[in-house]
Nucleic acid binder design. Structure first.
Lengths: 211, 211
DNA sequence: AGTGAGTTTAACCAAATGGTTAAAAAGAAG
DNA sequence: CTTCTTTTTAACCATTTGGTTAAACTCACT
């Protein structure tokens, strides 16, 4: 009995994930979620009193999945370049499984900015370790001066953006290519792109350091 | 009479732009558009028979604004590095005026991929000139080997993504900064980041070319 | 002033949608 | 088998929402 209840609950969550992440809060229909879960609309409301409640849960879940691994890797003890490669690799595999998440989270936050101040800021998003690491590398002359936050932003942008614009890019830029392969290629490419951009060749420092 | 009509029409379009770009197709309400235009819902339907029609017009307009200038600059006759700087500069000023457009267009296309195949592919989005230019620079040993399409993707990602995630970044990464200033700083930063990443220093080529 | 075109509005309609209710079905426990 | 709790459903309700209609108003022109 309890087992079946949990089963139903999971079916609902799975359906809600699908519908909400694809259509967003305002585009999602409770009926559609019920249909996709193979149940009745009233049962859906039995488990989740309102659309808003259900949405909150899905959104919170999505937000966590999207930010938590990143923050962890950013603050891990690891060589900077290796860290950059790891993040690209992580994002690739994560987005392969959840390609809808960035558009979902970013879209909802954009439409309802209040959502951000509610809980997201408490998520323990600290860049402290990373900041120190980057500053050390700069001081040591191994990379060009750069604001650590910019580095994070660039890294995320290069990895996430191509997934977000997939339908557009597929039809306009990569018309003759297999986009899954494009994304796979990008893993190494993105990391190399970032590393090339900040790395100072140890031989001819003078020429490149400032500029 | 005709003048007033055009005035009303423009008020409607302006209101529709605001509402649609902020809330998307499914989140927008005809009543809200009417209110924002300072008119009645029936008048709104007098000018635009349906929500879909009005939406199409706004979307088409947005899509054009978003892609046309980019394609033009990409295919202009201009030094590659200068071109990169120009595009960053262009995007900055454009997105300062229309910060909602990327989320709007990308979000809608993501939710309704069919929208892309309707007209967008006919928009004359050709990267031919740019492709040749990049290949020449590679052959001349002035930049590292890179797929021109990847270069375009990276360039757009670095410029557009930070605007799309503004509410998130503002609260999580740039909490103590003025985000308008952050974006302004990024203009030069983004261009330099890309150029640094692909530029081959003419002095010590051997060390950097492959890798 | 009168006419006729285009312009504006209040009131209304039908469908969609989030949510409720009351009753039936399914187990578990005695 | 009976009783009690939990689970499931069909039918229903109120509100929202896109869209219509018919009448009223404005204004250029005669």
């Amino acid at each position: 009995m309890v087992k079946k209840s949990l089963e139903t609950q999971e079916k609902i969550l799975e359906a809600a994930r699908n519908v909400f992440t694809r259509k967003g809060m305002s585009g999602a229909r409770m009926q559609e979620i019920a249909d996709e879960a193979g149940i009745n609309k009233a049962l859906l409301h039995y488990y989740y009193r309102s659309k808003a409640k259900l949405f909150d849960q899905i959104f919170e879940e999505a937000r966590g999945k999207l930010f938590f691994p990143l923050v962890q890797t950013l603050n891990a003890e690891m060589d900077l370049f290796e860290k950059i490669e790891t993040i690209c690799f992580q994002y690739y595999h994560f987005l392969k499984e959840y390609p809808y998440l960035p558009n979902f989270v970013i879209g909802e936050v954009y439409r309802t900015p209040e959502i951000v101040t509610q809980q997201m800021e408490l998520a323990g998003f600290s860049l402290e370790q990373f900041r120190v690491q980057v500053e050390q590398e700069i001081a040591a002359g191994r990379i060009r001066p750069i604001d650590p936050r910019e580095l994070v932003m660039n890294l995320i942008a290069l990895n996430v953006f191509p997934v977000m614009v997939r339908p557009i890019a597929e039809n306009m830029i990569y018309r003759d290519a297999n986009y899954d392969e494009v994304l796979e290629q990008r893993v190494k490419m993105a990391a190399r792109f970032v590393i090339n951009s900040i790395a100072l060749p140890q031989d001819c420092k003078e020429e490149n350091r400032n500029q």
